[in-house]
Amino acid sequence: MSISIRPGRPMDASDAARAREHQQALRAELPLVREAAHSWRIGLGGLLLALVGFSLIRGPSEVDKVEPPWNVVIGCLLLVSLATGAYGAYRLLSAHNGRPRTRPVDRRTSASTQNHLLALTALKDLRHGIIATFLCTVFLVAAVGTTWYGPEKAKPKLLVRTTTGAVLCGDGATGDGRRLTLKTKPGRVGVPLSDVLVVETVEKCP
């Protein structure tokens, strides 16, 4: 790549003032980015704390009430939410405090330029941190929504075998001393108790 430098346009005092402001903006850039990262960190941290603090998901007992495979989906959503939250926190902390590592000594470039490059890195961290934290919130809300509104796990069913060889399966069993009535898929079915051979509970009707 070839680079050529030639004299530019004539300048006046206002151009010089703009150039000076530009230099001053460069010198103030890194503290501004760090300050912005601090504000975002506090704001997003508060948002997540509020969400988690509401105890939206009380633990495995609540997740277990959801029909498979939705309980697995909730587990995955929570895991991804945790991962994106941790990543977002790391990027936001890096944006505010800098990356946790030393930088090689650079005698070639000016302090302003080095700070500008650091500001660019911090800005990138800030952008990624914000996106990751919002994603964490989205996954968390999705997990909570699935827990609250997902299909409930089916209750155990009653399986009745009769002496005639018939098999009835359903729930909501009622009896009047002589007949056992079951709520089955086709409808309510009654069986004389004297014909009942076996009654057992099953997870699912065959």
Binding site: H22, S39, T113
Partner: peptide
């Protein structure tokens, strides 16, 4: 050593804005 940059951060919104240059 004079920095020559495409943009300078100036506002709270997290994207680079063009400098006064």
């Amino acid at each position: 050593r004079v920095p020559v940059v495409d943009g300078v951060y100036k506002t709270f919104w997290p994207r680079r804005r063009n400098s006064a240059g």
